[in-house]
């Protein structure tokens, strides 16, 4: 049973920001798949929800050099969007691996990020792509790199009175390739044991011109694999070198033991799946 609360519907973005400012304890309702579940389980008992679900200005996908995804765009819309598929097929397929079609149809891209569940799919992919979160408040707008958005489990750097408005995904550099892979040893709709978002650009000499790797489910936030990246940048990317670099990720992740594996197992799998992700990106 959900404890009683007051539901206030915002008719515009400005009104939503006013409501947020006047009641910093209020929670924001978008698709509700995560929030309503937490409330059903008694883990969250907000006295007031601000329903932003009807705000058309926060919905939709557009291109202006960068790909801009409105926070209220559903995962299903993002997954099927011709713009997203053209801009970055790996991102479209990443959205398509979130939970099940019903959750994708209801849950929003922004809600997923604001929820900051470390086992979610889009965060590591968006970190690897160098995406930016656009936050809006009564005081104005600020942009936060995706990797700085996540502070801890279920905790973000979205401040009181701020609303996640959209995410901005820059285009891949010429010749760069991206992928998202996840390891699901139990069922297809489970949370990942480990997931990897990666972007790799190899120049004409076979050297790594640029690389970005981020992992999900193996730490309190998405984990940027900086040691892996610096071991590869500027180096000739042979399969042996890739493997050696990928294994460095085992010292960067901080997994917990759960039904999806022991901490030691997840650490090992982080190395294996980082290598697989990078190998898939070799020209």
């Amino acid at each position: 049973m959900i404890a009683p609360f007051e539901l206030v519907r915002a008719g515009s973005l400005a009104e939503a920001l006013e409501l947020l400012e006047s009641d910093p304890e209020a929670h924001v309702l978008a698709g509700g798949t995560a929030l309503v579940l937490l409330m059903k389980q008694g883990l969250l008992r907000p006295s007031r929800l601000i329903d932003i679900g009807g705000l058309a200005e926060l919905r939709g996908i557009r291109m202006n050099g960068d790909l801009r995804i409105g926070a209220l765009t559903t995962h299903l819309e993002a997954e099927r969007s011709a713009l997203v598929r053209r801009h970055c097929p790996a991102l479209a397929s990443c959205f398509g691996t979130v939970a099940t079609v019903r959750i994708r149809a209801q849950g929003t891209v922004g809600g997923n990020l604001a929820h900051a569940d470390p086992a979610q799919d889009p965060p590591p992919m968006l970190v690897a792509l160098g995406a930016v979160a656009v936050l809006e408040s009564g005081a104005g707008r600020r942009e936060v790199p995706m990797e700085d958005l996540f502070v801890d489990v279920f905790e973000t750097s979205i401040g009181p009175g701020e609303l996640l408005r959209e995410i901005v995904v820059p285009p891949l550099a010429e010749g760069a390739r991206a992928t998202y892979v996840k390891f699901l040893p139990r069922t297809e709709d489970d949370y990942a044991t480990v997931s990897v978002g990666a972007v790799l650009r190899v120049d004409a000499d076979g050297r790594c011109a640029d690389v970005r790797v981020a992992l999900g489910s193996v730490g309190p936030t998405p984990v940027r694999a900086r040691r892996v990246e610096s071991a590869l940048r500027g180096e000739r990317v042979t399969p042996a070198r890739l493997r050696e670099a990928a294994m460095l990720v085992r010292e960067e992740v901080d997994p917990i033991a759960d039904a999806r594996g022991s901490a030691a197992y997840k650490r090992e799998m982080a190395g294996v799946w980082t290598e697989r992700a990078l190998r898939a990106l070799l020209p």
């Binding site: 509700g32 679900g53 299903l76 019903r102």
Partner: peptide
């Protein structure tokens, strides 16, 4: 016309 999880959707939504 889109499938949703009605046990996680507030009727008001």
């Amino acid at each position: 016309d889109v499938p949703v999880t009605s046990c996680l959707l507030l009727a008001a939504q």
